[in-house]
């Protein structure tokens, strides 16, 4: 595993319910935030706390807990498809600044519980954004599973679900819950 873990100093967060389709907040673009505001710092802590108690959850966008704000949390540590990892982190106002090497994978989403879809994503990306609290601006270069997960979360912030990216009429599948 390569990549530097991002150090965040955040207060303890609250666990918040994850909203599901057809909640309207999932299909609306989120608003830019002030990363140093108390509201955003609390939201960042809530996202990490909620992600930590959700089995199999590697990323969470703010609108998935009902806040229409451009903030997401991520933690792909230990996932078998992870190469580069930046640990558990939260990014505000993220922008994809480079993307290459597309590959197709099957994705599910906590907000779309019974379905999965085959979606094409870049496997090498650079993402720019701001850390909550400190306001430090960062550019993260990453690949493989972390790159795919970041694009999925940025899509959420743009009001898009994997359902909006299905490439053909056979790409939607019932989600299987393994015993």
């Amino acid at each position: 595993m390569i990549g530097r873990s991002i150090a965040l100093e955040l207060p303890p967060g609250r666990i918040r319910p994850v909203v599901r389709l057809p909640a309207e907040v999932l299909s609306r673009p989120c608003d830019r935030v002030d990363p140093e505001s108390d509201e955003v710092v609390a939201l960042a802590a809530d996202l990490l706390a909620t992600m930590a108690v959700s089995p199999g959850c590697v990323g969470l966008a703010a609108n998935q807990v009902g806040s229409s704000l451009r903030v997401f949390s991520l933690n792909v540590t230990g996932h078998p498809k992870t190469r580069t990892s930046h640990g558990a982190f939260v990014l505000c106002n993220p922008e994809l600044v480079a993307a290459s090497r597309n590959a197709k994978g099957r994705e599910g989403c906590m907000s779309v519980p019974d379905w999965t879809g085959d979606v094409k994503r870049a496997t090498r990306i650079e993402v720019a954004g701001t850390l909550p609290g400190t306001g430090e601006q960062v550019v993260l270069a990453t690949d493989a599973f972390e790159a795919i997960a970041i694009q999925h979360e940025i899509d959420h912030l743009d009001g898009l679900l994997f359902l909006d990216r299905l490439p053909d009429a056979r790409a939607l599948h019932r989600r299987v819950n393994y015993q």
Partner: peptide, 15 residues
């Protein structure tokens, strides 16, 4: 029966 058959596991990633 003269065909090539391959099988793979499809593990969805919940994001």
């Amino acid at each position: 029966v003269g065909v090539r058959v391959t099988a793979h596991r499809e593990d969805p990633d919940v994001l």
